[in-house]
Design a protein around this nucleic acid. Sequence first.
RNA 1: GCCGGGUUAGCUCAGUUGGCAGAGCACUUCUCUUGUAAAGAAGAUGUCGUCGGUUCAAUUCCGACACCCGGCUCCA
Length: 646
Amino acid sequence: MPEITVILPDGSKRTLQEGSTAADLAMDIGSNLAKAAIIAEINGTEVDLLTPLENGSSVNIITGDSEQGLETLRHSTAHVLAQAVLDIYPEATFAIGPPIENGFYYDFAIPNDEAIKEETLEKIEKKMKEIVEADQTFIRGETTVSEALTMFSQHPYKCEIIETAEATEVDDDEIISFYRNGDGFVDLCRGPHVPSTGKLGHFKLMSVAGAYWRGDEKKPMLQRIYGTAWATKKQLKEHLERLEEAAKRDHRKLANELDLLSFPSELGGGLAVWHPKGSQVRKLMEDYSRQRHEDGGYEFVYTPHIANADLFKTSGHLDFYSEGMYPPMEMDNGEYYPKPMNCPMHCLIYRSGTKSYRDLPVRLFELGTVYRYERAGTLHGLMRIRGFTQDDAHIFTTEEGLAEEIGNLLEFVMSVLQAFGFKDFTFNLSTRNPEKSVGSNEIWDHATRALQEALESHGLPFSTKIGDAAFYGPKIDIDVADAIGRSWQLSTIQLDFNLPERFNLRYINSAGERKRPVMIHRALMGSIERFFGVLIEHYAGAFPSWLAPVQVSVLPVAEEHEEYAKEIITELEKENFRVQFVRADNPLGKRIRDVKTQKIPYVLVVGNEDVEAQTIGVNPRGGEVERGIPITDFIARLTKEINDQL
RNA sequence: GCCGGGUUAGCUCAGUUGGCAGAGCACUUCUCUUGUAAAGAAGAUGUCGUCGGUUCAAUUCCGACACCCGGCUCCA
């Protein structure tokens, strides 16, 4: 029997009988690997395990441990989902079903637009389990475009995919591949797949939702079933636990439980009222922001909430973004719009006097409240809201001063966000979209280079998003990772070549010539509301002492200790701590429980022993109870803790 | 805006195949006087999201609207 030799990823060689498949190779290496194997990579191309090997090929056996393996697993699970749905709804037609982060989805059109109910998901899941149980082999087939069109003639979306594939991909030979398993289920697919459905099994259907065909709102809406799938039962369990953890941190739930803010429906969608406790935290956030901006060389400004339509004609907002603006109010001398951005007004402030190059950079800062009309279906707690406040600044600088200003800004952003417990930053540089942008190539090149150099000179790794810039200039977006590893885009630094033109902004340079300043839009928290939502989830509602709306709760053991408790409170209030008194009207355990659910950093308990020794009992959030602490010690400790946090 | 689901006491939720609306927590009062995550008793609490329709009768069935939730689309 002739033999072939293949090369493994570590460079070693392995000899097999001719005609051996990747699966045979996996088995030859070890039965555990054969069991874990999902697909193979031959000479860098992902293929099914049943693909025969050729002499001299480099072969890598892919398992569910790798991203590639998981993707295949999820993709194959999506196939089984489609198989189950078509079994239950024989008249249904199916569209696409790719792997996504943590799972997969598949889009279907059900006859007569019958809705797939959440309850039906259980039925579908049961059917999928049967298919997995049956351990059906995935068999790859290949055919021509015209035959594929016949094969899928009952499925118009599949036909559209085949036709589009023909038009765009132009494979050498226009071969369309498909996979067959079970009793005649066929799906159009590039592959590869797991060898058989028995390899699957650690999955769960999550939800059903509407989704436009090809993501186009002009095209029909299909029904999308989402699922999650993992290589092991443990991974699936852990994923579901992560979802539970995220649900526990949901800012909408916590904002309600902790009495921070609410969205009364009479107020209208996407509009919040801040309760005293939420307002306390917000005030601390804003005070901190103001202090840092003051130290950072910013000048504070205030601008009105509405403006004449002329302003937004000048700025271009009415031309470009009127759909996202609240409708105008008719007034004696024209139309007035609630402002969707602060920048036009900041431009007016800049323009109010002649600027010399010696005045630059001008940094105007405002906690500016803006109103944007977000479509009804897009609203989402504090994360997507119709009225919000930006920690907004506009910096007007010379072209020469740009790189340095950007560099300082990057440092500033990180330094401010660190106070809120964010340590992992990701930087994204967005470059010009030539289809949709203003300004010369020269100015874009120069500005993009300035952004890139600032990132590089500060040693900050970044990814480039080509064509992702706004029409008016390139930008750097900054994402942070929260306490449970989720990423949030918070800060943005955007260059603008458009507004300085439109508002005819100028400064006089050292040679006495009129020059155009460069404008930088930047926000650190972005929207205070959204940032607050992120903070609630990041801290799971347990704000660090410097931010906590109530820092200390003081509980007398019995009524006779109330007087002493109030003396303690007086001492703490002298130090400007935010303190709450809980009178002895309930058993101590009950009162402790009540304040603990409010996630207050310190619960102080005082009883006979404390009155006698002039001490307190300290019950810190997430810590052990300590008895007999002198109040001065506690004050020193809390003061230090807060200073360390900032 | 689109698809699907939802809205009952301050909160979390049960319920009515169309016939006087319920629980737990919270709240009020009283009793208990407490040493680290739920003491006991009594009391009060509702436009059953809004407006219209069907009906002898609607919280329940139908329609429109508002708001919320899961997605899609959008996001200067």
